[in-house]
Design a protein around this nucleic acid. Structure first.
Ligand SMILES: [Mn+2]
Ligand SMILES: [Mn+2]
Ligand SMILES: [Mn+2]
Ligand SMILES: [Mn+2]
Lengths: 220, 220
DNA sequence: AACATTTTTTAGACTTGTCTAAAAAATGTT
DNA sequence: AACATTTTTTAGACAAGTCTAAAAAATGTT
């Protein structure tokens, strides 16, 4: 069995390897987990002994097959619990993550599968992130953001790239929640801020920083 | 904040103080938590520094007001999670305890209250144990067991005193589950084994060991 | 290629919770 | 009351995970 701490390292390495297929650096992990590089080196040694990561000294680290399997199963459990907390216990989307960080470590395949069934096999968590299936397959949506949309193009909000409480609360205040339909009405070339029409009911202007973290599915 | 370990000690002391109001012994705690007396002494020192227990050297330990409050809130959370696991995820009553041992430590009053509401404010857990209310009040049912019933007396099963997997599975196999109506049809004076009529449909014979762990509400 | 900066690893220490072995106190027995 | 047994505490050690400070390796710059 792996400790909570080991699981959190595996999850961090998994997150940092998404997208690029380069090895993950010690410092990146340290920052992700808010710890020191020396602590990371120690833990990498341990995970390496357990064959959960591959490590070349001074070069970087990557997950092995079994390491990745564990990481994905934790992500799956995390996101299912987030769905439970949001849909069943009516927590807001900026509140679910902290609880899920703890719930995810209650490891039992049986528990996860039953939770999945109870929730009706959801495909996405409250932030639009895909829930890996039992076999660990993940359907990532392509990262088209509001910032990528051109004038007069339409989209539906399907996710966020920034998961911070402040960003999520800000979006909720503007009704920019999952499923919302938006249309680009104006782009200011000076600072790339964008004015959106929301659900064809009202307009709102958001910064480039905000628009490039809001994932959409383009509507024809 | 208290660690999982500290919480488990508080819970153990709470359980051991139920019924009798004598102080709890170091050895009793060690046995309950499957650890050594010396470890218990160490932890008692720590909990005592935090004013969660009162300790007189060589005499024994008891919970303070705040220690008891924490212990009860963990019991509340534990039993609510057990209800969730049994009713919503359809785990059997001999399977829920282990998961609840982990879930109970996800401490957040808000989470507990929402879970309580989601479950419809249950009064008892899947083993018939009372769920403490938000203020920590517990409605213990009085301990009348099948062994206390006289010939031809009737009762409804409302709880168990032994929570072991083997006992719970055994009872389930005999359909001696919560809510079942039973009537004492025969008592063997040699070994105190009892023959029961179950739900007025069939008969079964159980040992004294089994009958004195099965809590009933007597029916007139 | 030589020097400067950044990144990573090592060395050694600290905290939490555990253990064994031994000492001290309490309890039981004659 | 004296001795034996049991219970509890103390002393000292260990594993997990963390930290700071310093050494080693890699990378960047002239
Ligand atoms: Mn999350
Ligand atoms: Mn999420
Ligand atoms: Mn239980
Ligand atoms: Mn129970």
């Amino acid at each position: 069995m792996n400790s909570f701490t080991e699981e959190n390292y595996l999850k961090a390495i998994f997150k940092l390897s998404l997208g690029s297929n380069k090895d993950v650096s010690t410092n990146a992990i340290a920052e992700q987990l808010d710890t020191r590089a020396s602590s990371v080196t120690d833990m990498i040694k341990k995970l390496s002994d357990k064959k959960l990561v591959k490590h070349v000294k001074y070069k970087g680290v990557s997950l092995t097959g079994s390491g990745k399997k564990i990481a994905v199963s934790i992500v799956r459990s995390h996101r299912l619990w987030e769905v439970f907390l949001a849909e069943k216990l009516h927590f807001k989307w900026d509140e679910v993550h902290e609880f899920a960080e703890e719930l995810e470590h209650i490891k039992s395949d049986e528990l996860t599968e039953r939770l999945d069934a109870f929730l009706g096999f959801p495909k996405h968590d409250p932030h639009g992130d895909p829930i890996p299936d039992k076999e660990g397959n993940i359907n990532r949506h392509k990262d088209i953001t509001v910032a990528n949309l051109k004038l007069n193009e339409k989209g539906v909000i399907v996710g966020v790239k920034d998961h911070s409480k402040s960003y999520l609360k800000y979006l909720e205040r503007l009704d920019l929640i999952l499923g919302t339909e938006i249309e680009v009405k104006d782009v200011v070339d000076f600072d790339l801020s964008i004015t959106l029409s929301v659900n064809e009911t009202f307009s709102v202007s958001i910064s480039n920083q905000a628009s490039k973290n809001l994932i959409v599915k383009k509507l024809k």
